[in-house]
């Protein structure tokens, strides 16, 4: 049995670790709430966009736009992988990377020119370790990605897509379904596919209702639609970033919660071993004293 003092030292250090993990759990919880609020605000925006799209559809506008049409031949593609800047969040990063890597390989096999863009230090590090070259990396996205930052990237993709520099954009990220369920997915954001189903998917059925109202379109339904399509791409990309941020905080919360619980259990076990060791030591000492006394009496 190890000696009592070293056991006590270990117990103390584990107590400190438990303090840290508990604090991290609390921080992650607070950040998760904030991130959720932002996601809710974004949903308010997507809801209204969906509403406009449904009004346009009701007015008989043909939903046609270059961003919605798949290209005949895909010559260049971009894969954007969203990971976190910080670790200690359980399997969050590895699950995104586990799904992103095979996709990257299949893209590279079928498409001659594939760019890889990674957001988050964890992902960048992992690709570096595997010896895969990352074309562009972002580290500015923390737990509250700002729309201005995302819009910049989105505008660049739109520009590249419109000018034919890329024919396809895939995003690998963690989709937030509920607090207890998040899953890593790869989505094709460009070409956008169906506009309405895209919007529906993001927030359930949009608020329909008074679709019978006659709207005046200014300047015309087609012109409004031309603007709606790029906007809904931007908002979808933004949603990806928000989902990734929320999922990261949830993952960290869960990981730190179980770390705290584990630390508690280890402390319990160590305390038991420590008490036993202490008692054994005391018994040993008493035996020695008694032995000494008896030796003197003789």
């Amino acid at each position: 049995m190890a000696n009592a003092r070293s056991l006590d030292k270990r117990r103390k250090s584990i107590r400190n670790i438990r303090k840290i993990t508990r604090t991290m759990e609390l921080i992650a919880t607070a950040r998760y709430r904030k991130a959720m609020d932002r996601a809710a605000a974004a949903t308010a925006y997507t809801d209204r966009i969906t509403q406009i799209v449904s009004r346009l559809a009701a007015a008989g506008a043909e939903v046609e736009h270059p961003l919605l049409e798949p290209r005949e031949e895909t010559r260049a593609a971009t894969l954007l992988v969203l990971t976190s800047n910080r670790g200690l969040c359980g399997g969050y990063n590895s699950s995104v990377l586990r799904i992103a890597n095979p996709r990257l390989q299949t893209l590279r096999e079928s498409i001659p020119n594939v760019r890889l863009e990674v957001s988050g230090k964890r992902g960048i590090g992992s690709f570096k370790f595997r010896g895969i070259n990352v074309d562009t990396s972002y580290t500015q996205f923390e737990d509250q990605p700002s729309y201005a930052d995302v819009e910049q990237i989105a505008n660049r993709y739109l520009e590249q897509f419109v000018t034919g520099q890329i024919d396809r954009l895939d995003v690998a990220y963690t989709r937030f379904i509920s607090t207890s369920k998040q899953e890593a997915v790869v989505e094709t954001l460009l070409p956008l596919g169906n506009l309405e189903s895209a919007a529906d998917e993001a927030n359930g059925a949009g608020p329909g209702g008074s679709a019978t109202v006659d709207y005046e379109f200014h300047p015309s339904a087609v012109s409004v639609l031309e603007e709606v399509v790029p906007t809904s791409f931007k908002i979808r990309l933004f949603k990806c970033f928000l989902d990734a941020a929320v999922s990261e905080q949830v993952a960290r919360m869960v990981a730190m919660k179980s770390a705290t619980e584990n630390a508690g259990e280890i402390i319990k076990q160590l305390s038991m071993t420590y008490n036993r060791a202490r008692q054994a030591q005391i018994t040993g000492e008493i035996m020695e004293i008694i032995g000494g006394v008896e030796a003197l009496a003789n």
Binding site: I52, R55, L56, V213, D214, Y215, E216, F217, H218, P219, A221, S223, V224, E227
Partner: peptide
């Protein structure tokens, strides 16, 4: 300009 009672409109 939009005043009260304006007809429904969607615009860019």
């Amino acid at each position: 300009g939009v005043a009260a009672g304006r007809a429904p409109l969607i615009g860019r």
